[in-house]
Amino acid sequence: MKNVIFAGVGGQGVILASKILMEAAKNAGYGIKESEVHGMAQRGGSVDCHVRYGEKVYSPLIGKGHADYIVSLEILESMRKLDYLALDGTLIVSIEQINPAPVTVGTMKYPADLEEWIKSNVKNYKIVNTENAVKEVGSRKAMNIVMLGVLSKYLEFSMAEWETAIKNTVKDKFFDMNMKAFNAGRAF
């Protein structure tokens, strides 16, 4: 059984990233459960997707302390999810910063020490700077797929399986761009 949480800000595309992972898991013959957030929270709020796959999966939610991987598309959002990380779980996080409302209006500060803090407090982590990757791909929106590419190095699916999963999930005209983003992620 594998438990993966995708975290980010509404609009960053955590649902698409989790869809591709589910497609890969389904094609590999696993049972799948996933849980996602719709509605009000999507208006620029914190969002997450829980994806679980294995022989027999019951719960669509991952219990706290049970996530094998947390993939966060924004560094502050990773902090809200850390209590889900399993003892030997891995945090994969982009250093991307998106200011939340309390920071924009000036009532709070965006914590400056998150990267350092993660390095000294999280056992297994991979911190990536996706800036150049998304520039190369030509779309900031592809950051979710770059991060999926980073995750893919830790999972059991072959490159061909990922390619099929992406092909089956995204629109044809975006396939090449998404593959480029995915490969950029794998290069980290």
Partner: peptide, 19 residues
């Protein structure tokens, strides 16, 4: 729940939905 990571020392700004 097992906590594998200590608590972050400062308050984390919330991210309420926005217009």
């Amino acid at each position: 729940p097992l906590n594998s990571v200590p608590d972050y020392r400062n308050e984390i700004p919330g991210r309420p939905p926005q217009l």
